[in-house]
Simulated scan of single mutants.
Amino acid sequence: MAHTTPATWNTYYADGGAFRPLGDAERRLLAQHAPAADGALALDVGCGLGELARHLAAAGYTVDAVDHSGTALARARADTAPDTPVTYLLHDIEHGDTDELPHPAYDLITCRLSWAFIHDRTRVLNRLRERLRPGGTLCVITPVPSAVPEDKRGIALDEEEIGLLCGGWKVADCHDADGLAFLVLREPIIRTVRCAAKGRPSPHALTGAGVVVTDSRGRILLGWSARREVWELPGGKNDADEDFVAAAVRELEEETGLVADLEDARLLALLMDSVHGIPRLTAAVRVPAFSGEPAVREPDLIRRWEWMEPADLPHLPQPLFTPSAHVINTVRPGLLPDLPPVHRYPITATAAPAPAPAPAEQTAGADELQQTTPDR
């Protein structure tokens, strides 16, 4: 997975950098799977130097082409004829607001050779899905590991990542475009939340903590466990003589690199269910403040960390780890409906820490929890 900044890309393009030219196979597949109807609108995400945007315009689309590199857009505008129906816009599709886009919905959204550079792909994919007109198409064109040198694997998507991208669509076709994966995605499926176990644990008393940590916009941090094929919160088992809050803060740092103050962490409830006949006790811990940026510290357990919009969680194409779902529903009561049974024992804090800035509804949800009756 490759992660860069606008400054990095500005330097790259200022030095004359470019991407692989648009190939004949891509042009043919675009004509076959995404022909332009009268008045059709297209959004080209990560447009770079604008080659794909200009091709779509020539094919009949009115195109909004966005990129977070001002240098790339300057070069793109210089190479675009004045009467070409392409609007270039400086916009960060991952960190910006899609309400800032020129049009509310599009017949075609393309993302060519740039999907691997997006960190919170699930959230971005959800926002792009919302911008498709009925019957619209999302087209992602990406390198695959077998077609790039080993030192370039970060710009490619493997089978697992392509599977995650294709989840949640009625139509998800993959074509070969001279070594590139050409993905055609249509008719998004809005799923209800699904939960999954992670296999039979070793026989012992199962106790641990799940940690809800949010960024400044109220997004919840979740990790993708490729081995177990579930999304899960940071957290894990507590060590001998270690309390739940200490375990939560320790696991958060060990798994993500985020550092939290033990005095700020807040135990909201104890949750008890069972797995394979073994009782399982999970502490729901809220961490309102932290320092650092999420990083994969234990790649054998978690493939990547993403900030997720709470409203997206009930409709994830992939399942949530069951204890994580219960912990999220403790912090945000009612967010995830129809979860498996659990015994919930709310904890009334004797001295609640001063909360860090967070959305008002999130704080209110946690406060309401203190007056609820245990689910039995």
Rank of each mutant, 00 (worst) to 15 (best):
E253L: 08
V275L: 11
G277L: 08
I278Q: 09
R280G: 03
A269V: 02
H276N: 12
T256A: 04
A265Q: 10
H276S: 12
D273L: 11
E255T: 08
S274W: 03
E255W: 07
R286N: 03
D264N: 06
V275H: 10
D261Q: 14
E255R: 14
P279G: 00
D273C: 06
G277Y: 10
E254C: 05
L271V: 06
R280Q: 12
L258F: 08
E253I: 02
E253T: 14
H276T: 05
T256F: 10
T256I: 13
D264V: 02
S274L: 00
L270D: 01
H276Q: 05
L262W: 10
L268M: 14
L271F: 05
L281H: 04
A283R: 05
G277N: 09
A265Y: 09
G257A: 07
P288D: 04
L281C: 10
P288T: 01
L271C: 07
G277E: 05
A269K: 06
A284H: 05
R286Q: 00
A260E: 05
T282K: 06
R280A: 10
D273F: 10
T282G: 02
V287D: 05
D261E: 14
P279C: 00
D261A: 15
V275D: 11
T256S: 15
G277H: 06
V275Q: 08
A260M: 08
R266F: 00
P288K: 02
A260T: 06
I278P: 01
E263I: 03
R286I: 00
G257C: 04
R280L: 13
V275W: 09
E254H: 11
V275E: 14
D264Y: 00
H276I: 01
S274H: 14
G257V: 07
V285H: 03
V285N: 01
L262A: 14
R266K: 04
L271W: 04
E263A: 15
D261F: 01
R286S: 08
A284T: 00
L262Y: 15
L267F: 11
T256R: 08
A269I: 03
M272Q: 15
E254K: 14
V275I: 13
R266E: 15
L262N: 10
D273N: 12
D261L: 10
R266V: 14
E255H: 06
A269S: 12
V285D: 01
R266W: 06
V259T: 15
L271T: 04
L271G: 06
I278T: 11
L267D: 02
L267W: 12
T282V: 15
V259P: 07
L268F: 05
V285E: 04
H276W: 14
R280I: 00
P288V: 01
V287R: 01
E263N: 11
L262C: 11
V275Y: 02
M272P: 00
D261K: 11
I278F: 03
G257Y: 10
